[in-house]
Computed example of a mutant assay.
Amino acid sequence: MRRLLPTAFSLALVLLGAALPALPASAQKVARGETPYATREDAMQFADDVAARRNLDRAWVRATIGGARLLPNVPRLMLPAPRGTAKNWRVYRSRFIDPVRIAAGVRFWQANAAALARAEAEYGVPAEIIVGIVGVETIYGRNMGNFRVIDALATLSFDFPQGHPRAAERQAFFRSELESFLSTESRTAENPMVPLGSYAGAMGMPQFMPSSIAKYAIDFDGDGRIDLVNNPSDVIGSVASYFKAFGWQPGVPPIYPVAFDEARLKKDVLLAPDILPSFSADSFVAGGAVLEGEALRHAGLLALVELQNGADAPSYVAGTQNFYVITRYNWSSYYAMSVIELGREVRAAMEP
Rank of each mutant, 00 (worst) to 15 (best):
L20Y: 06
L20T: 14
P21S: 15
A22K: 12
A22N: 12
L23D: 02
L23T: 00
P24M: 11
P24T: 14
P24H: 10
P24G: 14
A25P: 00
A25L: 13
A25C: 05
A25H: 07
S26E: 13
A27I: 00
Q28Y: 00
Q28W: 01
K29A: 13
V30D: 00
V30I: 09
A31K: 02
A31V: 11
G33Q: 04
G33P: 01
E34A: 14
E34L: 12
T35H: 09
P36A: 03
P36E: 03
Y37K: 09
Y37L: 13
A38T: 08
T39M: 13
T39H: 11
R40N: 11
R40Q: 12
R40M: 11
R40T: 04
R40I: 01
R40H: 11
E41R: 14
E41M: 08
D42G: 06
A43H: 00
A43C: 08
A43E: 05
M44Q: 15
F46P: 00
F46K: 04
A47N: 06
D48W: 02
D48L: 10
V50F: 02
A51I: 08
A51F: 06
A51E: 07
A52Y: 08
R53V: 05
R53K: 13
N55I: 04
N55H: 13
L56W: 00
L56F: 03
D57T: 03
A59F: 07
A59Y: 11
V61C: 05
V61E: 04
V61K: 03
R62Y: 09
R62S: 11
A63C: 02
A63F: 07
I65C: 06
G66H: 10
G66A: 11
G66C: 10
G66V: 03
A68G: 09
A68V: 03
A68I: 01
R69V: 01
R69Q: 14
R69W: 05
L70R: 01
L71D: 00
L71K: 01
P72V: 00
P72R: 00
P72A: 08
N73D: 15
V74H: 02
V74S: 01
V74K: 00
P75W: 00
P75G: 04
L77Q: 12
L79S: 03
A81C: 05
P82H: 02
R83A: 12
R83N: 13
R83V: 09
R83M: 09
G84Q: 05
G84T: 07
G84C: 14
T85K: 05
T85Q: 06
T85D: 11
A86Y: 06
K87P: 06
K87V: 10
K87F: 14
N88C: 08
W89E: 08
R90D: 13
R90E: 08
R90Y: 10
V91T: 13
Y92S: 01
Y92V: 08
R93C: 07
S94R: 10
R95I: 09
F96C: 06
F96M: 11
F96N: 03
I97Y: 01
I97R: 02
I97G: 02
I97W: 02
D98L: 12
P99V: 09
V100K: 11
R101T: 07
R101K: 10
R101L: 06
R101F: 05
A103H: 13
A103Q: 15
A103P: 07
A103N: 12
A104Y: 03
G105F: 01
G105I: 04
G105H: 07
V106P: 02
V106A: 15
R107D: 14
F108K: 06
F108D: 05
W109I: 02
Q110H: 13
Q110Y: 06
Q110N: 14
A111Y: 04
